[in-house]
C-alpha cells in the first residue's frame, strides 16, 4: 500500500493523483474479510447461499439469518460489515415498496439492481459519508405471468386492445452483484467474501451460461461451493444458510424463500461427501507422487 501516508486516502470522495478513490478500495477490504456468499442463476430460478462463521458457542443455532427478503420475489445476501448489509437491505425494501406504490406491481430485478447501484454509488461521492462495507448479491424472479395490478378488483376486456402478443416471453431469473463502488453486473454465478476466489473457480466449472443446470442441482452446487470455499478457513466452524426463488411453476412459485430444511440437509450431506471424496483423491495422488519420486 504505497498510498498510505500520502494523505489521499483519509477522506472519501477524494481522488489520488493516479485517479483512485482509496476509501472505496478500503471498503472492499472489509468485504474481503466477510463470510463467503454465492448466488447461482439458472433457467428455472435463483439460489443464494452464505457461509456464516460461528464466532461464539453462545450464538443461537439457526437464528441470525443473513439472507434477507426484500419483496416477495427478491432476496439479498451480503458479505462484509453486517450492519451495512442491513442498511443496504432496508434501502432495497424501501425501493421495492416505493416501486409498488408508483407502478402497482413488483419491481423488476434489473430495476432494483440499478436503483441500489445508484444508492451505493452516492456513498462514494461525499466526504460526509463512508462507502458501504459490503458487496451484495441480489437474486430474484420477474414473474412470467400477466400479473394483476396491486389492488385490482376485476379484469379488463378479454380481447381487443391491450391483448397480449402470443408467444412473447417475459419474466425470468435475475442475479446481480453490487460492489462498494456502486458498480454492478448481472451474473450467471456470483461470489463474494473471503472465499470468493475458490468459489468463482467452482462456479466457472458449472457452465452456467448454457442454462442446463436445474434449480435443484444448483442448490446442491451452491452448498458444495460454500463448503469448498470454507476449506481455507477450516479451523472455524460455520453454518450454511440458503434461500431460493423459483419460477411460478417451481417449488417456491416465484417467491423468495428459505431452502426447506430437508433439501438443505441433503445438499450439505452431498457437499461433505464431495469434499471427502476430493480429500481422498488428493491423498491418493500424494501417495502416487511419493512412489514416483522413489
Amino acid at each position: 500500500m504505497t498510498s498510505i501516508g500520502t494523505g489521499y486516502d483519509l477522506s472519501n470522495s477524494v481522488f489520488s493523483p493516479d485517479g483512485r478513490n482509496f476509501q472505496v478500495e478500503y471498503a472492499v477490504k472489509a468485504v474481503e474479510n466477510g463470510g463467503t456468499a454465492v448466488g447461482i442463476r439458472c433457467k428455472d430460478g435463483v439460489v443464494l447461499a452464505v457461509e456464516k462463521i460461528i464466532t461464539s458457542k453462545l450464538l443461537k443455532p439457526g437464528a441470525n439469518r443473513r439472507i434477507s427478503t426484500v419483496d416477495r420475489h427478491v432476496g439479498i445476501v451480503s458479505a462484509g460489515l453486517a450492519p451495512d448489509g442491513r442498511h443496504f437491505v432496508s434501502r432495497a425494501r424501501d425501493e421495492a415498496s416505493s416501486w409498488r406504490s408508483v407502478y402497482k406491481g413488483p419491481i423488476p430485478i434489473s430495476a432494483l439492481a440499478n436503483r441500489l447501484g445508484s444508492y451505493v454509488q452516492a456513498y462514494t461521492l461525499y466526504s460526509s459519508v463512508r462507502p458501504f462495507g459490503v458487496t451484495s448479491i441480489l437474486g430474484g424472479w420477474d414473474s412470467e405471468a400477466e400479473l394483476a395490478v396491486d389492488g385490482q378488483v376485476g379484469s379488463g376486456p378479454q380481447s381487443g386492445a391491450g391483448g397480449k402478443v402470443k408467444g412473447a416471453k417475459s419474466g425470468g431469473p435475475g442475479l446481480y452483484m453490487i460492489e462498494p463502488s456502486g458498480l454492478y453486473w448481472g451474473y450467471y454465478g456470483a461470489a463474494t467474501g473471503k472465499g470468493r476466489q475458490a468459489a468463482k473457480a467452482e462456479l466457472e466449472k458449472l457452465d452456467l451460461a448454457s442454462e442446463k443446470l436445474s434449480l435443484h442441482d444448483a442448490v446442491k452446487e451452491a452448498a458444495r461451493i460454500i463448503y469448498v470455499a470454507h476449506e481455507d478457513n477450516k479451523d472455524k466452524e460455520f453454518e450454511l444458510e440458503m434461500s431460493w426463488i423459483s419460477s411460478l411453476e417451481g417449488p417456491t412459485k416465484g417467491r423468495h424463500e428459505e431452502v426447506p430444511k430437508e433439501l438443505l440437509e441433503e445438499a450439505e450431506r452431498a457437499a461433505r461427501r464431495a469434499l471427502e471424496g476430493d480429500d481422498e483423491d488428493e491423498e491418493e495422488g500424494a501417495k502416487g507422487n511419493e512412489q514416483m519420486e522413489e
Partner: peptide
C-alpha cells in the same frame, strides 16, 4: 378507497413476511 386499503394491506403483508 378499497383498492387503496388493499394496497396498504399488501405492503403490510410483505413487511410482515420479511422474516419467516
Amino acid at each position: 378507497d378499497m383498492q387503496y386499503i388493499d394496497r396498504l394491506l399488501e405492503s403490510m403483508d410483505i413487511r410482515e413476511n420479511y422474516s419467516a
